[in-house]
């Protein structure tokens, strides 16, 4: 799945300032939770604390710098934003108390909005399936979510999951329930209420 980025990684071109869009950087910096970006001193503590940085193409430190400069494409096409597990390890260690996790969330949202991810990439598919399910019923069921994600990304992964599924079934941990809350109407109304443009 991640291999899709490989070629790009090898042919990485030099960045020129004209590729940057500082307005975009400022827009991200203005979002709630992302204010701290400008105060980053590039110490790298976040990257050191991050359990996933070894798998990332851009470390969290570099993401912050690249967002600040406004290199939108590079940031939104990085693997990093998808690998981030929202564990907040970076956030509690950052000496400038920058909310790196929220920056990652903001970037994920923008990438998903603009469909900037490889086709059949499971994370946005899962997020979307989750979003729709909760909107329709007010609750989520892991089984149906995983099934939907697999069918839309790569049905073959179901083979690998079959064993886990069997274990869960055997121990009574696989719920096929399809619950719906009573207040689903009011919930939908609240979710659909008009908003200010971000």
């Amino acid at each position: 799945m991640l291999g899709i980025y490989k070629q790009e990684a090898y042919e990485r071109h030099l960045r020129f300032q004209r590729d940057a869009d500082p307005t975009w950087g400022r827009k991200i910096t203005a979002l709630p939770g992302c204010e701290g970006i400008l105060t980053c001193m590039q110490c790298g503590t976040c990257s050191a604390a991050c359990p996933l940085s070894v798998y990332m193409d851009y470390t969290p430190r570099r993401i912050i710098a690249t967002v600040r400069e406004g290199f939108r494409e590079d940031v939104l096409r990085s693997q990093t934003i998808w690998l981030c597990a929202s564990c907040y390890a970076c956030r509690v260690r950052c000496p400038r108390e920058i909310n790196i996790t929220d920056v990652m969330y903001a970037l994920k949202r923008e990438a998903i909005r603009n469909r900037m991810y490889p086709p059949h990439f499971p994370i946005p598919i899962l997020a979307r399936a989750f979003f729709d399910m909760v909107k329709r019923r007010g609750r989520s069921t892991e089984f149906w979510l995983v099934l939907r994600m697999a069918l839309r990304s790569n049905p073959l992964i179901l083979l690998g999951m079959a064993k886990t599924g069997w274990h869960l079934w055997r121990t009574g941990r696989l719920s096929l329930g399809y619950e719906k809350i009573r207040g689903v109407g009011e919930l939908q109304k609240a979710l659909a209420s008009p908003r200010e443009e971000v």
Partner: peptide, 22 residues
């Protein structure tokens, strides 16, 4: 209702807050 977990935050922050607000 469901809290929306990390998925709602990755799609629509306000919707995520609305779920918990209810």
């Amino acid at each position: 209702n469901c809290c929306g977990a990390t998925s709602y935050m990755s799609i629509d922050e306000r919707a995520a807050f609305v779920l918990s607000a209810r």
